[in-house]
Design a protein around this nucleic acid. Sequence first.
DNA 1: CTGAAAGCGCTTACAG
DNA 2: CTGAAAGCGCTTACAG
Lengths: 353, 353
Amino acid sequence: MTTGNRMAEKTAGIRDVAAHAGVSQTTVSHVLNATPHTRVAEDTAARVRAAAEKLGYRPNRFARGLRTHASDMIGLVTEEIATTPHAGRIILGAQEEATRRGLTLAIINSELNPDPEVDSAQVQTFLDRQADGIIYATVYHDEIVAPENLRARPAVLIGARDSTGTIPAVMPDEQAGAVSVVEMLLARGHRRIAFAASEEDVPATRGRLLGYQHAMRAAGLPIDDLVAFGTADARGGYAATLQLLDHEPTAVFCYNDRMAMGAYRAAGERGLTIPRDLSVVGFDDQAPIPESLFPTLTTVTLPHYEMGAWAVSTLDALLNGKGEDALLAAHPTLLACPLLERESVAPPRVAGS
Amino acid sequence: MTTGNRMAEKTAGIRDVAAHAGVSQTTVSHVLNATPHTRVAEDTAARVRAAAEKLGYRPNRFARGLRTHASDMIGLVTEEIATTPHAGRIILGAQEEATRRGLTLAIINSELNPDPEVDSAQVQTFLDRQADGIIYATVYHDEIVAPENLRARPAVLIGARDSTGTIPAVMPDEQAGAVSVVEMLLARGHRRIAFAASEEDVPATRGRLLGYQHAMRAAGLPIDDLVAFGTADARGGYAATLQLLDHEPTAVFCYNDRMAMGAYRAAGERGLTIPRDLSVVGFDDQAPIPESLFPTLTTVTLPHYEMGAWAVSTLDALLNGKGEDALLAAHPTLLACPLLERESVAPPRVAGS
DNA sequence: CTGAAAGCGCTTACAG
DNA sequence: CTGAAAGCGCTTACAG
C-alpha cells in the first residue's frame, strides 16, 4: 500500500494533494480532517481522498501543531520504571489506551528523587515538548505535593492524591482487595487466619492491614496473636510466618507475594504441606512468583494496566473539555484488585469452629 | 524560578525576547541556539539571555520542527512491554540516555503480533509523528525481517539482527555469559556440572547451552548425562533437576532463574541443602527471584539497560551523520552478561577429581 | 557583529 | 459547496 514511499524525494504536502485533486488546500484540509460544520460534495471529497492515498500524503505534525497548539502527545512521568515490577503494566495500559485514541505516549523516568525540583524538571521537559497533558505516576505514596508546573496543563495522578485535592487521581483499592481475601478464606471454612504484615509505612501496608482487620472483625473473629510484622520481602515473610505458626493459624495471608515466598519456606521447614496443612495467600500477583511456586500461589492482582488506561482516558476527557475534573479530584478513583485463585488455598485440615 | 509562569496568558515568543533585549529575532535565535560560525558580542548575548530568562522563554518545538525537520524525539517499538520482565530496563536505559542527549523517548508496544503489517503500522505511527529515528526491540529472536518502512529513518534493532544485515543491532552475549558461569564453577572445584536446559528453540537457549558445552569441553570434562531439558519455568527446572540429580552432579546450572526455582524445590525434596550439597546457578537475574530464594541465587545479569542506552546513543550518532552504520550492521554488537554472585554456590562437598 | 525577510506546511476565519 | 489569504513561531541564507 505504502510501497514506493521510500523513493519519494520530498514527501507529498497538502499542496500536492490539492493540485492533484484540482481543488484548494482549504478543501483538502476540510475533507481530510472532516472539519465540523463543513459540507463538501461527495465526489470532490472522493477525489481528494484518492489523491491523498495515491500520493501517500501524511500531514506534517509540526505544521499542524503550530496552528492548533495540539501535539496529540501525552507525557507519562513515572517513578521507578524499572525498579518496581509493575510500572511496565502501567505503561502498557497507558500506551494502548493512547493508541486507541490517536495519541502518542512519551515517557520519562523520575529517579525516585525526593527533590521536587527534579520532578518539576521532568514535567518541564514535557511542557517544552508541547505535551497536551501529563500523567504523573508514583508508587507507594498516599498524598504528594505535585510539582507546581504540573498545573500548566491538564494532568492526572496515578498512585497518589495531590495534597490540594485538585488533580484527578487513581489508585488501587488495597483495602477492598484484602477484604476479599479474608472473605474467601472464611467461605472455605478458615477461622484462624493470620496476617503477615509489612513493617513499612506506606499506604498499601495500611490499606491491606485495615482490610484484614475489618473483615475479621466483621466476622466476629479475634485477631490478637494473628498479626506479625516483617520486612516486605521473602525474608520478612519467612520470619513473620515462623512467628505466626506458633499460634496455629490454618491460613496465612501475606502482605505481598515476596513475603508469601518466605511463608512457603517457613511452612516447609515446619513440615507443613501447602495447602493441605496451611493455606497461603499473597498480594500483587508479581510475576513470576505466583506461577513459580509449588503449589502456585493464590493472590490479588493490582490494576496497573487499568490505572494506566484510566489515566489516559481521563486526560483525554479533560483535553476535550469534558471537565469533570473537580468531581474526580474530590476523591481519588479506586480501582478494584481482583482475587486470583490458584492452588495454595484449601479448607482447613481440622474443621475450625 | 519559573514562578509566575502559570499566570502568563500567552507564553513569550522569540519576538518578545527580541523586543525586550532590543535586538532582532535573528540575534536571539543565534544566541540561544549557539549557532555555529556566528559571533555575537558578549554583552548583546548576555542581554538576550537575560531577557529570555526573565520572560521564561521556551522555544516552540512545532515552529522549530517545521523549519529544521527535527523533532528530537525518538520512537521505541517494543514487543511485550509488560509480558517480558525485562522490557522495563530497556526502556529505562533508552529513556535515560535520551534525556542525557536532549532527546525525548516515545514508546509503543507491538502486540507480539506475528503479522508484519501490524509492526509496520507501529513504525508508521512514529514516522507520522516525525520521530527522528526508531528503535525496534524484540526479544527471543535471532534474525527478523524488519518492517519495510523502518528504513525510512535511521533505525536500530535490539535483540535481533535484521535479515539483510543492514540495520545496526545489539544483543546480549548469552554464550559468553554461560561460559563465565562454568568457569566460575570450575574454579570453585566443581567437575560434575549439570545443565538444566530449556526445550524452547530460541537464540538464548542455543547460546547458553553452547556456552556450557564449549566451556566443559575446553576443560576436558564429559557432558553426556549431565544435560536435561525442560520447559523454561519452575516446573521445567524441577523436572530437569530431578532427572539430573540421578547422575550426581555437584552443581546445576539452570537455563534461567525460574528453572532455578524449580531446582531449589527438587533439591529440597531430595534432602539436599544448597549450596552445601549442591550449587545452583541461574540466568537472567529476574527480579524478585534471586533475592527471594533461600539462599539467594547466584545468576547472570542481562544487559537490558545497556542495550537501551546503546540503541539511543547509536541512533544519535547516526542522526548526526556519524554513519558507522555499515560497520555496525555487519555484525550485531554483543553486550556482556555479567555474573552476579550471591549465596547459592560453594565448593563441592566431596572434592571432585 | 547584527538584521530584514522569506518560508517551513498546515488550519481557519472570512467571503462568495 | 469551495477558495484566497493570513498567520502560527521559528531558522536561515543573505546582505551589510
